[in-house]
Design a protein around this nucleic acid. Structure first.
Length: 345
DNA sequence: AATAATGATTGCGC
DNA sequence: GCGCAATCATTATT
């Protein structure tokens, strides 16, 4: 019920009644009465308000005069405090900045890829060594790898120069703004705290720009990786002998062209390719054979004839064992017209 | 330069 | 995990 008066009292923040000002004025204006002080302040404020109407030289002189005025520090502090209470307190609350998880992720990735970290020694020698250490396959691989390294270091260089540019621009801008604010704080209530806040705002802005750089660098690295890691891009056909061996197996097991794990391993060893390459080959072969048997007719006949010949020659030498483990008849895949029958004769 | 062949990858169902 | 089918990207051929 009777809270109204108290509320109204607490809201009454006027300039004349400001405790800080009163305190400052006590030692500044010894001997004058209240009317005089008010007159003084009104005078100063009037001068400040009209300063823009004057010519440049005049304004400069007036600014200097005001700056040297004995009331200046007091007024300045009061204005700063009022400003702090009215404007900045609104934004002051949301001041804390937790480390952005996304930024951390980007940083970690760049570090892991060797883009952000310290410069790793020199050029092609180190790259080749690294390639040899990781690859172990041979010259082909190391050539690819050094190419990869070269491109990566290119990205790295761009990243660093850009980052440095941003850093420099940020510093330049910050000092510029700080100087400006310091300069303006001679005529405008700008507290050091406010300048500090402004600097942190600038830093935040620039770090968000840096994050964009990091983001795009990450993307570039990912694209580079996918380019070089995708085996489709460095595909080499198998040599003649390898395809020969694979085809031989395929056509002699046409009824069931699914080599077991062991068979795949053996084929891989014989062709000096990996087991998964063997699997890929058989996968491709099966589907392509099935899709267009006619096209493979000739090939099928050729290999069938060849195995038939080798089988007969083997059996002619005495051993009666059937060479392929699975006979070639009933099954999923249609056979070509010429069906090699090793039981022939 | 077009086109075919070929090894590798991806998405889906089992 | 495997195989199939579709597809990609490169290499060989015309």
């Amino acid at each position: 019920m009777d809270e109204q008066p108290r509320l109204m009292h607490s809201h009454g923040v006027g300039m004349a009644g400001h405790p800080g000002l009163a305190q400052h004025m006590q030692d500044g204006t010894a001997g004058t009465d209240g009317e005089g002080r008010k007159q003084d302040i009104g005078d100063i404020l009037q001068q400040i308000m009209t300063i823009t109407d004057q010519s440049l030289d005049e304004a400069q002189a007036r600014k200097h005069a005001l700056n040297c005025h004995r009331m200046k520090p007091a007024l300045f502090n009061v204005l700063c405090e009022i400003k702090e209470k009215t404007v900045l307190s609104i934004r002051g609350a949301q001041e804390e900045e937790p480390p952005d998880p996304q930024l951390m992720r980007l940083d970690n990735m760049l570090l892991a890829e060797g883009v952000a970290g310290p410069e790793k020694g020199g050029g092609s020698a180190a790259a080749a060594a690294a390639a040899a250490a990781t690859g172990g396959i041979g010259a082909d691989n190391s050539a690819e790898h050094s190419d990869y390294r070269a491109k990566l270091s290119q990205i790295r260089q761009i990243y660093h120069t850009e980052l440095e540019k941003y850093e420099q621009a940020c510093n330049e801008f910050t000092t510029h703004v700080m100087n400006l604010l310091r300069e303006q704080s001679r005529t405008r209530p700008i507290s050091p705290k406010e300048i500090e806040r402004m600097v942190s705002i600038i830093h935040r802005k620039f770090s968000s720009i840096q994050m964009q750089l990091k983001q795009s660098t990450c993307e570039a690295v990912m694209i580079l990786r996918s380019r070089f890691l995708d085996a489709r891009r460095k595909r080499r056909n198998f040599n003649k002998q390898a395809t020969e061996i694979l085809n031989e197996y395929f056509y002699s097991h046409l009824s069931n062209p699914y080599p077991s794990e062991e068979a795949k391993e053996e084929l891989a060893k014989k062709c000096s390719i990996t087991v998964s390459q063997v699997s890929n080959w058989f996968g491709n072969k099966r589907i392509r054979y099935k899709k267009n048997i006619g096209k493979f007719q000739e090939e099928a006949n050729m290999y069938a004839a060849r195995t038939a010949v080798s089988a007969t020659s083997v059996s002619a030498h005495g051993s009666q064992a059937n060479s392929p483990s699975t006979p070639n008849s009933a099954g999923g895949y249609p056979s070509p017209c010429y069906q090699p029958d090793r039981r022939i004769q």
